[in-house]
Design a binder for these strands. Structure first.
Lengths: 203, 203, 203, 203
DNA sequence: TATGAATGAGCTTTCATTCAT
DNA sequence: AATGAATGAAAGCTCATTCAT
């Protein structure tokens, strides 16, 4: 039993170390040697913990999911009021540190692999679930907002929530594509203002 | 004298054929043989028109840019009124056909490559420019909307425009990730309604 | 008939132009395109005059032979006295111009090919004949020298002649290997002095 | 832990095995597979020890140098008297076994490569040094001979030594070119006689 | 358990040669 | 006769994976 725990812990550790190098080189261009180096292990040792290169990616995808879950969870736990929660969610989703960039890059690559080959479905399922949770949470907040008269009663909460959650990825992509020109702080601020109708013209 | 061939046209043709294969397999996994097969040519012939595999990608990126430019251009040309133009832009950006999916996948991969290695900057510069054009156009439409009292005078048009344009990519990503659950038609509709404040609660 | 003459003349011309590029890059590394470029022709045109790349080399080897024959012939024709002839032969053999270097490089490569594969025997046979002629000529001069009491009666004229002729190649090789340090003029002078016993200690 | 291997020793072993193949086929025509086969290894294993095909050639050139150095060293060590040393040197230089032929062929090819491209300078520098050592040694012997009255006081020892050392290569070349007609034993004998003036006509 | 030596499948790229014009 | 487009065989090199120690 402790054996297995150790094993899983080591797998997780190796996967963690792998993320940065996977982000920097991409899955195909990353060699097992690269990952072994990053983990401070011999190439053969990596194969003691993973049967194949793809299996590493599988654990990496879990790690990414956990990281995302953790960061959103922390952000959302400390807030009570729905509107502030929504605002905090947006802030969190668009708070791009270097580590987040790495996660995001690998996440994007996993997305591509998932699109291309069914066998990678499992790798993304965690993240799809997270998206779904975020969407549902957001939908709930929108419903709350509708009650408060912030949005029209006819608003399709679910569709709008799906849009908002999806838009996060787009913003991060465009920010990373052109950091010099894309002022993500300003965009975040305006995004929040716009969503929360704090700047709605009529009172 | 040998068959006379318009080199640039042939390059463009091969690149066009390559897009589908590149979308399906990814740049690294796509072999020159794959591209040659798709173009109905011998492997060596492809090298007659391109010095390296990367050069193919370069022309592919140009083709993608032209396709995008064409589709947006067409959509925007036939509309006059700013608000309708914005609506049409969103419709167009979120109108995902199979061909668009292919372009989008390759575009995403180019994005990854660009993030990872400076040498791919040129490949993305076309598309960055397109994004910029779309953003400026959108900002103009928002300014128009501000005049019409649709949005608050304090709205940061540029930031909001950047957000909207960026969100397109996020929506497409999420749609493609989970076609079964992500109802892009409904999301598009709600997105437009939301942006255009057609459903703003107070009058 | 004039047809054939023209054809042979063109073959010879192309071969002449090929020598420099063959010297610079080597047979294997030289492409037909290189040769076509050097001859100012299209690649396909070269194939009108030569069936294969090797056939070009065949004509090249003939050209080299003719060049060598010509240069030695000229040098030897204008001299009468045996000892001066020998001296002139050495001078000529060790007079290395840039053109001679090119010939020598290709000649060396042909030698290698001949050593490695029987099929190149023909290419070298011309040159072997030339060597033989030079050797016989030299042997005759040595015999003459023996009569003049310059060399011992027991001298094996043929073996000594073979040695002298062979040594030319060695000297050229070492000169070309290390032009900075190998003073071929001085070596030539001393060589001649030594061979002609002009510096023999006892009288 | 994996099998422990002395990398340098293995590199040297592979290079040794490569010499014969390189001699038989030439550098360009020799495939890595050929070398791997000769060494009894897989293709990939060869790349475990050498980064590129050229790196193999580099170690080969070192091996050739060591072989030459060894054979000359052995020949010269066992003799004391200058004149006999010179005679032994010539004997050794012209003692062409099958192994020597292989070395000589590769050496000649390295010479060609060195002539053509600067980057091969290093490969030849060992051998240039050996030539220089041999030349200096020979010059010393000639000086000794001058003291003994064997050669004229005015003899340019250095130039004559350069000539003699260079002539070795020429003799080997001509011998290998035409083994049937070139009696290297006879030539060697006459060469020695000639150089040592054992057959000088006047006393 | 930990390691790196060994391996061959598979990829990009080159180029002699053919052939349509 | 002259040309260059077309082609596939063949070679260098990489790397996931296996395995002996």
């Amino acid at each position: 039993m402790p054996r297995i725990v150790d094993r899983d812990k080591k797998r997780s550790e190796i996967a963690q170390k792998a993320i940065e190098v996977l982000a920097k080189r991409g899955f195909q261009a990353t060699t097992i040697q690269d990952i072994a180096d990053a983990a401070g292990l011999g190439k053969g040792t990596v194969y003691h913990y993973f049967k194949t290169k793809e299996e590493i990616l599988s654990v990496v995808s879990e790690e990414i999911f956990h990281e995302m879950e953790r960061s959103f969870g922390a952000a959302l736990l400390r807030i009570d009021k729905p509107m502030e929660k929504l605002s905090a969610l947006i802030e969190e989703a668009l708070h791009v540190t270097e580590d987040v960039e790495h996660l995001f890059i690998v996440y994007t690559e996993l997305w591509l692999m998932n699109i291309r080959e069914d066998k990678y479905n499992d790798y993304m399922s965690f993240i799809k679930n997270l998206h779904n949770d975020l969407k549902n949470l957001t939908a709930k907040m929108i419903d709350e907002g509708k009650k408060q008269g912030l949005w029209d009663k006819d608003t399709d909460s679910d569709a709008l929530a799906a849009y908002l959650v999806a838009s996060f990825d787009g913003v991060v992509v465009h920010y990373m594509m052109d950091k010099g020109n894309f002022d993500i702080r300003r965009v975040t601020k305006e995004f929040i203002r716009f969503v929360l109708r704090q700047g709605k013209p009529e009172r």
